[in-house]
């Protein structure tokens, strides 16, 4: 029983990442009808926003401390971050410590900007082109973004620690009456999961309860009619693209402490997220979220030793296997609407 709960929890955090990326992909697909292969790159950009902010915050100046000497006997140079000298050592170091959560604020405007530029500069010209062309051009863009990041940050993963407060693990087992240390779950993953839940809820609430969201939903259903009513639907869809990019970006920011960001993390997630979108049903937002969590949990369950003994290698292929079965049995996906991308 405790093993099952542990796997369930493990599946949740991976599932949240899948769900967040798939949500953004679906938003873009549902509004603009564009298949965005560069979405993984946006996720990666978000993670690198966290890295960048951490570097900016820890910018330091050197002072010579006459009281200490280094091993050669010269006066030692001491690096002090600017923040510590401005706000005092305690406040400064805690700001640096909290750089990952702070990076969310930093990433949102950047990602919305990136999304806006991407849509206006590139994607706009591809609405009328076949889906294959959209896939290809965004694939090219993903390569470019990835390589630019590699130029600036190098090819190695960059560790980006979470705030000290969230280090360590939470013992779930005790809470549920199992032995101590049976179900251990890192705090940050708990944070990630709750964060994902909040973001998903926010996106849904935004679409459901605001006028803007209502117009967007109407546009998703029938773009032309909304346009005829005198609403500039293109502009709103562009904003939605920005929001989708921001969702991917902050998913990346929060994921940085779980997996040190490297330049190809986006591609790794992209393929899986596409599978998630297809399983959930192209164009269905709840479907994307559901499928994201479902596949995340399935993946972690199949990596249990007991299951691996019966079906070796199943943990590597389970997601693809499920996708193939779903596509063949229920081509529309779990919650896909009728008539979306059915040719």
């Amino acid at each position: 029983m405790d093993v099952i709960i542990l796997q369930l929890l493990n599946g949740l955090d991976k599932g949240s990442a899948y769900a967040l990326i798939a949500l953004g992909l679906t938003l873009i697909f549902g509004t603009l009808g564009v298949v965005n292969f560069a979405h993984g790159a946006l996720f990666m950009l978000g993670a690198f926003c966290a890295v960048t902010l951490q570097r900016i915050l820890s910018l330091s100046f050197e002072t010579i401390d006459p009281t200490k000497t280094d091993f050669l006997g010269n006066p030692a140079k001491v690096k002090t971050p600017y923040l510590e000298s401005w706000f005092g050592p305690e406040m400064g170091s805690s700001i640096i410590d909290w750089s990952v959560p702070l990076a969310i604020l930093f990433a949102i405007p950047i990602m919305i900007g990136v999304g806006y530029i991407m849509e206006r500069g590139l994607i706009k010209h591809f609405y009328k082109r076949p889906h294959a062309d959209q896939i290809l051009v965004t694939f090219g863009l993903a390569i470019v973004i990835q390589e630019v990041i590699k130029q600036f940050y190098g090819a190695n993963p960059i560790p980006t620690p979470a705030p000290d407060m969230f280090k360590g693990s939470f013992d779930f087992g005790v809470l549920l009456g199992f032995d101590p240390n049976a179900v251990i779950y890192p705090y940050w993953r708990l944070v990630y999961f709750s964060f994902a839940a909040v973001i998903i809820a926010a996106v849904f609430a935004f679409l459901q309860f605001t006028t803007f969201g209502m117009v967007v939903r109407a546009g998703m259903a029938d773009r032309e009619t909304v346009g005829l009513l005198g609403i500039n639907i293109d502009k709103r869809f562009t904003i939605m693209f920005g929001i989708a990019a921001a969702v991917a970006g902050i998913a990346g920011v929060m994921y940085a402490p779980i997996n040190s960001p490297n330049y190809h993390m986006g591609m790794d997630f992209l393929v899986l997220s596409f599978v998630v979108v297809v399983v959930g049903g192209m164009g269905s937002l709840p479907g994307a979220v559901l499928a994201g969590f479902l596949l995340g949990i399935l993946e972690s369950f199949s990596s249990m030793n007991q299951i691996k003994q019966i079906l070796p290698g199943i943990d590597q292929i389970i997601i693809y296997l499920v996708a193939i079965i779903i596509l063949l049995v229920r081509p529309r996906g779990l919650m896909g609407r009728k008539g979306v991308m059915e040719d």
């Binding site: 298949v35 393929v271 599978v275 693809y320 996708a323 193939i324 991308m341």
Partner: peptide
């Protein structure tokens, strides 16, 4: 399947 579903299916098989 055709269109993007075909692309995803082949991708899934290859990754498998």
């Amino acid at each position: 399947r055709s269109g993007i579903y075909f692309s995803i299916l082949t991708l899934a098989f290859a990754q498998m």
